[in-house]
Amino acid sequence: MTVIPPGQPAPEFSLATEQGERLSDADLEGQTTVLVFYPFAFSPVCTDQLSVYQEVLDELESRGAKVYGVSCDSTWAQKAFREKLGVTIPQLSDFEPKGKACEAFGVLHPGGFAQRALVIIGPDRVVRYSYQAPSPAELPGANLIFDGLEAVPS
């Protein structure tokens, strides 16, 4: 299983927000969306990754990009993780039904967690950039998000 390639429409999916609502593919219409798939809340590597993206969040938002963290952890674990890090990046949970959205994006690890991956979806809901780290221990730098945003038609 590999991450969804650029050029394909975003798959149908539904993820739980911290507010107890659902965010689905239809909600992405009209906004540039950056989905940051990560394996586990509280794992040291994920910790560094979200801290780095938080550092450039203003820059991403000024380019009209909305960033979300996605994992198969429960909403409660994600919220505690986000608060512990002191980051504001909203988290989306793929806990129930477990891994369904990750599977739709081609990033579900056989172990039942998300591969470390980035997916950028344009306002037309077409995937414009995707990247899957060669191993879960390898962190995609924030530079890759800015490279990927170049592929989103303005």
Partner: peptide, 9 residues
Amino acid sequence: GLRAGVALT
């Protein structure tokens, strides 16, 4: 560092 792909220290 960010541009060079640094993501951890």
